[in-house]
Design a protein around this nucleic acid. Structure first.
Lengths: 204, 204, 204, 204
DNA sequence: CATGAATGAGAATTCATTCAT
DNA sequence: AATGAATGAATTCTCATTCAT
């Protein structure tokens, strides 16, 4: 409905110009409505931005969730999740810019929204790492603090690769995911010895 | 000289308030000079911001370069570089904010500056990976595109961990570097099997 | 009917917020009708305000008229009129605010409405003074211009006392009227007997 | 200096249009300066309005004070004060409008400023009445509450007559003062002698 | 008769930028 | 070399007013 058009426009402008440089005039014009209407539906620039963040965060987590099947082995789940993540960010660059760049740069109220979403994703990855450790019968267990750092690094690498993949033409979500899986799962040391993590064959 | 004071002030204000929210008034006041003087030395807000980016980028790359000794083995070089990187970003949070957050959020001209610096660092890491591959007599060689992606992921993970380390009290540069080395060098798969990358003993 | 509800709401809002700060939205909401309906009955904000002024002016003059019995002596008529006036303004503070404060502060068209009502009351008082003069067989007659000024002063004092009585808790309409009668009638009584205060001679 | 020009313009616009209807644009234009300059000297519309009120209040009380010589008899002091008051309000109608109409209609912070000035004037009049009572050897003393009401009524009558005199062409400050003195002094004179108007008994 | 939905016009306020000295 | 004083151009937000139904 009307509100969605406005959010579409806002995400696009916020994503490209940045929160502060975006003007409500421009957003209204791109949405094809008058400025007062924007204020009627979304009360202020802050509220509008928050609504954008929430919508994009929900869309991204939903995309990842939809890409993963819970029953499968941990590496397969990670692989699927990464592909979904890279595919979604590639398809919604402005939304990704809002989440990854804009929201974190403009004060606590906004950053907190993204932090919440990120925490959800980091928790998901952390669970996967724990499962993998159990599957590998690792003993003794990895210390918790270490796991947190690893998950953080993995998510950070993914976020960074998303920007890289978007900016490097010809890089598909699949390739980005494969690169990261190799890096993360096998490790550079293994890679040196030729031990490469192999993505499972695609059905389609 | 006078220009450095202005840049100091600008980096601090830009880093804390963000590019758009920073006002030239505030910067001039913090620098202890009059506003027209700022315009005399640095022609506009954009130019001032660009100068900040360039200075901080140079400082960061220089810090990393100074931390690394070229003759040593690749893993040692990476370890040293990471520690220098985490130490520098921890000591210059405003500068890091300007580079990592602000510059990337406000349009091409600024983002390009950071991209250039980043490219330099990625190239350095890429060389290290290539050296490591040669040291390990890996055969066949890793494809170039793959190496680029790995370096990208490594740098992205480092950037992400820098923010995480800054925000997590009690996390030292050394710990952050160790976490990342473990992740990168050994790989999760190895970690599962208990093969941990061990940092070399510290001399001091 | 419906129109009266709207005027009730309008008087309340105009009286409390002031003409400009009052919003048609608020008035419509308080009246329990939709905004277009307000525009249907009363064409614009200006017209609505004018209607409020007229209604409140009529109510006030009617209240005073109803309080006075024409046959009685002049001082009794004045006393009754003042009591009615103070009682009405105390019971309708918003209406009095509209007449005394708002209408006079927002340009000619509105001020003129109040001026008309005021003229009616001043004329009534002027008649009373004339009657009193006749009753006192004053000779020679007070000049007309003087009588007008006295009536004006009396009405002004009453208006001022109304605000004072409203703002001073525990002051009844009766007390306010008594104070003013004391002030005014004793003075007028002297005037009737030809005892005039004479200004000192001017040097220039 | 520059600030006075702005206040001149502001008093004129506020006095004629009213506080809310006055636009900073119009004020700046009339002052012959740019809008930001107005904000540089006087921080906001509210502050500007407050500054106007203070300046006009000071000017009015100063004019009255300058017109009165303390040593003279009470009636002469009152006469002189009234003439000064009517002369000043006639010469500064916009300032008078700001004080008498605008400031009282737009919320406490502003009304309080005028209330303070008015309290000063009422106190002055109250002292005069007390002096007059002593001069007339009145016994018993007028009750304090009664004196307050009388002073209030006298000041209110004066305020009201000021508007009347301004609006009635050919009425001089001298005439207005004479009318009010006649009204007030004769009345007060009687009161001094203990001649009080007695309200008729209430039936209920 | 009644309204939900929409807007054109204008409000206060801020800021990067520049003269005149 | 340095600045106090000044402004053009935006920006967010509000409100009286009107269609289409």
């Amino acid at each position: 409905m009307r509100e969605q058009q406005m959010l579409d426009a806002a995400v696009r402008i916020f994503g490209q110009r940045g929160y502060m440089a975006a003007s409500m005039d421009e957003i209204a014009e791109l949405a094809g409505v008058s400025k007062p209407l924007v204020y009627l539906y979304l009360n202020s620039k802050e509220d509008l931005f928050t609504a954008c963040i929430r919508r994009e965060a929900a869309a991204l987590t939903e995309a990842v969730r939809a890409g993963v099947r819970p029953g499968l082995p941990a590496d397969r789940q990670l692989w699927d999740g990464l592909r979904a993540f890279f595919a979604h960010t590639a398809e919604h660059p402005d939304g990704w810019s809002v989440l990854h760049l804009q929201a974190r740069t403009h004060g606590e109220p906004f950053a907190a929204e993204v932090t919440a979403m990120r925490a959800e994703i980091v928790a998901f990855v952390t669970r996967l790492v724990a499962v993998a450790a159990r599957e590998a019968h690792r003993d003794p267990d990895l210390p918790e603090h270490e796991v947190a750092g690893l998950a953080e690094a993995l998510v950070g690498a993914a976020e960074s690769l998303a920007a890289w993949a978007n900016a490097t033409p010809g890089t598909t979500a699949r390739q980005a995911a494969a690169t990261l899986m190799n890096f993360a799962w096998a490790g550079l040391g293994n890679l040196m010895r030729g031990q490469v993590w192999t993505p499972p064959a695609e059905p389609a």
